[in-house]
Design a protein around this nucleic acid. Structure first.
Lengths: 217, 217
DNA sequence: TTGACAAGTAAGGAGTCCTAACTTAGGATT
DNA sequence: AATCCTAAGTTAGGACTCCTTACTTGTCAA
């Protein structure tokens, strides 16, 4: 055991510095999305909407509003522009005549694929970390995001850790401790997903809670 | 050695998922800053400007523009509002009569302290990680940010890892491998700073490059 | 059938962001 | 000293973001 050094005493708490670091990356994201979208003749929100519709294969305006953490009129505004540009089609929902179903046109799909690459700049900066660092990092991010979800401070995602099919720490083996009951396969920290098509929200957040408590390291 | 499992084959690359996770936190940051600032009668940018002036003790509009990754007219606009509200004072710079020096008024300092707490929600979510996880996490964030800086994709910060006083891996001891020549004290990964008043930018990015290559784990 | 509630659009207003066009000051060159 | 270039900042104007409030239309249950 060593005593407290200069830096143990004269520093912002670690959590605060991490929050600051995340805010800096947030600045970069904002700036890059404005730039990247602008080069394609899109606005940041328009690009986000295209990417989201591409991922989901079609959604309602209110779903988009939830996912992107804005109000319905904000989506409505941007969608009108996208429809005018011929990138999105508005269809009446078969189940509920009040609702609208938004789908990409062919041109919209092309733009969506391009727009999806906007975060490549971040992904490539992640390569500055080693593989084990990346694994710990993803794990940490998931814990944070799950915590923010529980507090209603971030839109819900289709993450493994909040899925009925997820069995945390179901196996003794170090590298793949978790299990997905849907595909019936073991998975490790490096495999955990943020958006899974097979996701089914756990009624009670048991799996997520266990993940928060017990996951390694 | 075990073979490739289902999830090794059918997954987005780890770097992409990390980028997605960071983007989600970016969404939360945007949303919370709009909310938090709004409750205090401020806009997000106004709040950022107050916080930055509080940290630095007074800056020029062009410095603010650099730090916040926006153009000068954007700052000029918001500053005018802050001056009207009596939170910021415009002073002529003594050295250069073209330049303006912005300083907080007493009321401005009060608001700045409140606005600085806007990222508390993130800091407290960071507590979902264990202490060793947090250390790896901060280390990873610093590598990412440094990489983004080198590419000009994020504003420069006054981080240890890009400082002339920083000596990476100067000590053999595991928990405090680095050294700060300014205060002449060893420091570990958990002590690394993002904004240090004693920062002096390294002419050649040697220290930073060494940090990127050699830092543990 | 009527009345509450949900999905979506429209209208209006504050803020964010940009580029382009000034204004004024500093510094170098003649 | 006169001139020209460059830097700091403001103003003007336009697109987009984002909100709240106020409709419109459709669902569903009493």
């Amino acid at each position: 055991m060593s005593g407290k050094s200069f830096f143990d005493v004269h520093s912002e708490p670690l959590e605060r510095r991490i929050a600051t670091a995340l805010a800096k990356v947030g600045t970069a994201l904002k700036h890059q999305s404005l730039q990247a979208a602008g080069e394609r003749g899109l606005s940041p929100l328009q690009a986000q909407i295209l990417v989201q519709l591409h991922l989901s294969g079609g959604e309602r305006p209110s779903d988009l509003a939830d996912r992107l953490a804005v109000r319905l009129p904000t989506i409505s505004d941007s969608v009108r522009v996208l429809v005018d540009k011929g990138l999105v089609d508005r269809q009446r929902d078969a189940d509920d005549a009040r609702a609208t179903r938004l789908v990409l046109t062919e041109a919209g799909r092309t733009e969506a694929r391009r727009a999806a690459g906007f975060s490549d700049f971040l992904a490539s900066a992640v390569e500055a970390m080693s593989a084990p660092e990346q694994e710990v990092f993803l794990n940490g991010m998931l814990k944070m995001i799950r915590t923010l979800e529980e507090r209603g401070q971030i839109p819900l995602s289709s993450m493994c850790v909040s899925c009925t099919h997820f069995r945390p720490n179901a196996h003794p083996r170090e590298d793949r401790p978790h299990h997905c009951a849907f595909v019936d396969a073991p998975l490790g920290a490096r495999h955990l997903r943020l958006e899974c098509h097979e996701h089914e929200a756990a009624a009670a957040p048991q799996a997520a809670a266990q993940f928060l408590r017990f996951s390694r390291p």
